[in-house]
Design a protein around this nucleic acid. Structure first.
Lengths: 362, 362
DNA sequence: GTAACGATGGGATACGGTTTCCGCACCGGT
DNA sequence: ACCGGTGCGGAAACCGTATCCCATCGTTAC
């Protein structure tokens, strides 16, 4: 019945075990390990030997409790298997690891309840920031909820970062990392129009998704700029997946078969559209041109290779993490500065082989 | 100069702040929140009101220190953008969230140093398990290192889980979740052989990667079973990426252009191979058949859709997490049982449109 | 009417580190 | 030989929560 548990206990070794075995004080061990206090060479050697012998690692929980601890960021994502999001996650994770930070991930599966639960969970973890990936839904209630999240995290010394969606309205303590979504769509549609296409099937995505709204707006603006009437009947909304692309084209071939090009809201949607056209005996791009959006690897792996809009997803992830890190260094000083709270990265069209002037068979 | 920091301090509220404001003891607040101890309705109401007012959340670090805490698993992955790994991660994360567990991810980028650092970092975090994804390298030193990891984690009350690779040799405290890699390759090659193909270009992957070794062995066995001589000159090793598939086919078309089918080690490699064949003016599958491995979404999005081997990646993730959870529940009792430490899931061929008997043009 | 008991709430302590504050020893200078 | 300074190691006070143990109060049984 010893006062303290035996050194040879099953669980992990504590700093006290190390101190005892090395015949020094607990404080000394801590100092040797953190290295922010002068210790004699002799002491360091003795301690390090025991640390190796016991295979000791410090308890991260205890360490963060006491003040130190490695910063952690949380990445919240709808679906980890989406290539675009995966690239953002890669950017965040890479930048985090580079500075010794940790990253937690959670997937929400498009469920607002899970999102709520996860944000709270992350708040408990005392994360340096919560990074939310993907387009937002354009419901007022959703926006209000985000604002509440932002304030709540801010009050707890954390921070909310929105990636790939428009910033929140009002004076909300959140950082947004966005890309020129509408501009990319404008450029992409212009590319199609300047090739001579006039009847274009548009598959922007879900009507309530901010991403889809921006892409649709960009396309409309391009039509206006070219003086081409925009036919709302040629727009079909739906999820960003392969099946939607396939089915939308199937339906369009039945209803309005006179289109000569497809402006897909996503590369994956474009892939589905392409397959549906082939199934109907049409050739791409000889009979129908197709363009995508995102420039994920798939775009260059399709046949023909897809002309699409490049979005710097991985860089967005890096930028998001840097924003958090900077803010953490900066600390006070720029409390109310709304500057730098909204970063916008550029997009550009990548021309490949899926577009051809209409009516030019062969 | 108060003894304790003011309740209205900037940082997050503590349980003590709540207790003070509600006029109860710290213990009572803890009990109300954890709910594992009888408390009067009056007390509960008073506490919960303050909790809401202060937007209080418990400090996860303190909680884990004190014994409670939500279990966490760490997922270590080479490259998060790989579709197959992403699906495993999804399986793990999904199953984890289902039981209220948390998941940390780290990417190693194929760098053994980073892998080492990450395992240690995760050990500090006191994770319930470290789940390592992807094929292993067949170096002795690497195997030894893994064994050391396993023992180290085991000693710290954690556990190592290997997913998608062969189990470690010897009496190592690790769990392996594997799939019938060789069997899948055998079936896939048989499919090609039974269609009449005899000259097959084989792109198994990196020679040192256990995954590639298994797929190659399976193919060889199938050739033997069919009594078809296996030509080592038709095997080209390389990374599991699009570029390798493309370049390998380009080179093969130059060196040994008489092949009628390509047995790719991965769907992505198959995509590259397909593109290279097209670039050379060959049709798939009329002139050359192609098969892949993994059955990621890309396989069904290519044209023609790819015949491939389905690997239950997401399920592997779920199974891995369940293994960890079971072991944690089970606790003692089955210490030395090597049973159940190696789980193997089945694979099967998915027939699509990329295979045709050779020489049947049209 | 009183003793025993169940239901609750409070105080104290442990969890594993970090860090501040102190004291000790050893150094050289006069 | 005495004194002040410097460098290094130790004791103890936290960090925020869970839980054990005990005190109290209202009940029920005898």
């Amino acid at each position: 019945m010893s006062q303290r548990k035996a050194t040879s206990d099953a669980g992990r070794a504590t700093i006290r075990d190390v101190a005892e075995r090395a015949g020094v004080s607990v404080a000394s061990v801590s100092r040797v390990l953190s290295g922010n206090y002068p210790v004699s060479e002799e002491l360091r050697r003795r301690v390090m030997k025991v640390v190796r012998d016991l295979d000791y690692v410090t308890n991260a929980h205890a360490r963060s409790l006491a003040g130190g601890g490695t910063p952690t960021v949380a990445i919240l994502i709808n679906n980890i298997t989406g290539a675009a999001f995966a690239h953002v996650a890669k950017g965040v994770e890479g930048a985090a690891t580079l500075r010794g930070w940790l990253s937690l991930v959670g997937t929400t599966g498009d469920d607002p309840e899970r999102e709520l639960a996860l944000v709270n969970l992350m708040r408990q973890q005392g994360v340096a920031a919560v990074i939310l990936l993907g387009g937002a839904y354009d419901y007022d209630e959703y926006q209000l909820r985000m604002a509440r999240f932002a304030r709540s995290l801010d009050a707890a010394g954390s921070h909310l970062v929105l990636v790939g969606r428009p910033p929140l309205e009002g004076d909300v303590p959140a950082t947004t990392v966005d890309y020129d979504n509408e501009g990319g769509a404008y450029a992409m549609a212009s590319h199609l129009l300047s090739a001579g296409h006039r009847r274009v099937l548009v598959l922007p995505g879900h009507a309530e998704l901010t991403t889809a709204q921006g892409r649709l707006r960009g396309a409309q603006r391009a039509f206006e700029a070219y003086g081409v009437p925009f036919d709302p009947g040629m727009v079909r909304h739906g999820p960003y997946d392969y099946e939607h692309g396939y089915e939308a084209v199937e339906a369009a071939l039945h209803d309005t078969p006179d289109f000569t090009a497809v402006l897909a809201g996503t590369d994956v949607v474009a892939a589905g559209a392409m397959q549906a056209l082939r199934a109907a005996g049409l050739r791409v791009p000889e009979d129908v041109s197709i363009v995508g959006y995102d420039d994920i690897p798939l775009a260059s792996q399709l046949t023909p290779q897809l002309t699409t809009v490049h979005v710097p997803y991985e860089e967005m992830g890096r930028v998001a993490l840097r924003a958090v890190a900077d803010r953490r260094e900066g600390g006070a000083g720029r409390r109310k500065s709304a500057d730098g709270d909204h970063l916008v990265l550029g997009t550009h069209v990548v021309v490949r082989n899926s577009v051809q002037p209409p009516g030019q068979h062969g």
